[in-house]
């Protein structure tokens, strides 16, 4: 399938544009990833800074923050996800149209961060839904978010439209919605979604 890159460039010089459906499709996807407009804590301030003139996320085709999950492609989980908030975050994710991507931004969103040993903070949003890119940092700088964004774009670029390696949204058997946890008497139920988050093994 792949075209010889040098040949492609040479043909481009001659005014012949060669591409594949996959390349075109992925180029379209990655060049207009619209994030959802929501923030949970202090990381959201850095996310806002990223969209402003100095860092200018618009360079990556992601300046349109959509206030509705129906119109968004990317969920940036920017901040601490409390257990009270987690069901709403998962519900918002379920309401997004495919293809959808998730960036977990900051220590809290990826692991619970400084609140990991507390009772009220979710120990990472990846317990309930698939996360494409994790960014550490407390909060991560705008450059880190841009790095995550470019990582996501590379990931989208590498997607195959068919076959084994195809992304979840092209696989009719793969789930697109994930169980929204219920607030229970002592904790969220379930504590993690099976199949999304493997229970980690600690090697001592």
């Amino acid at each position: 399938m792949a075209i010889d890159q040098e040949l492609k460039i040479e043909m481009g010089k001659q005014g012949v544009f060669v591409t594949t459906i996959q390349e075109l499709y992925n180029w379209g996807r990655r060049s207009s990833v619209w994030p959802m407009q929501f923030g949970l804590a202090c990381c959201a301030i850095e996310m806002i800074a990223t969209t402003m003139a100095r860092y200018d996320l618009a360079r990556f085709g992601a300046e349109v923050f959509r206030p509705s999950p129906r119109q968004a492609d990317l969920m940036i989980v920017a901040g601490t996800v409390t257990k009270k908030m987690a069901p709403q975050v998962v519900r918002l994710y379920n309401q997004m149209a495919e293809p959808k991507y998730v960036i977990a931004m900051g220590a809290c969103a990826i692991s619970g961060g400084p609140f990991k040993q507390g009772y009220n903070v979710l120990k990472g949003i990846d317990r309930y839904m698939p996360v494409d890119v994790h960014i550490p940092g407390c909060p991560p700088r705008p450059e880190a978010l841009i790095q995550a964004f470019m990582t996501l774009q590379k990931k989208i670029d590498s997607h195959h439209l068919t076959g084994e390696g195809r992304p979840r949204y092209l696989d009719p058997d793969a789930p697109g919605e994930f169980k929204v946890p219920e607030p229970g008497e002592h904790d969220l139920e379930p504590a993690s979604n099976q199949g999304v988050w493997p229970v980690p093994v600690v090697i001592r």
Binding site: K83, K84, G112, K116, Q117, G118, Y119, N120, K123, P183, G184, E185, H186, D187, A191, V199, P200, V202, I203, R204
Partner: peptide, 26 residues
């Protein structure tokens, strides 16, 4: 006001038992 309705415990009490829900650091 902070925890959800239907939550049974009182987390700041000294005998509160937290949910066993985090993987432990090495």
């Amino acid at each position: 006001i902070l925890m959800w309705e239907g939550f049974k415990d009182h987390p700041m009490r000294k005998d509160y038992v937290e949910p066993d829900d985090y993987e432990y650091e090495p």
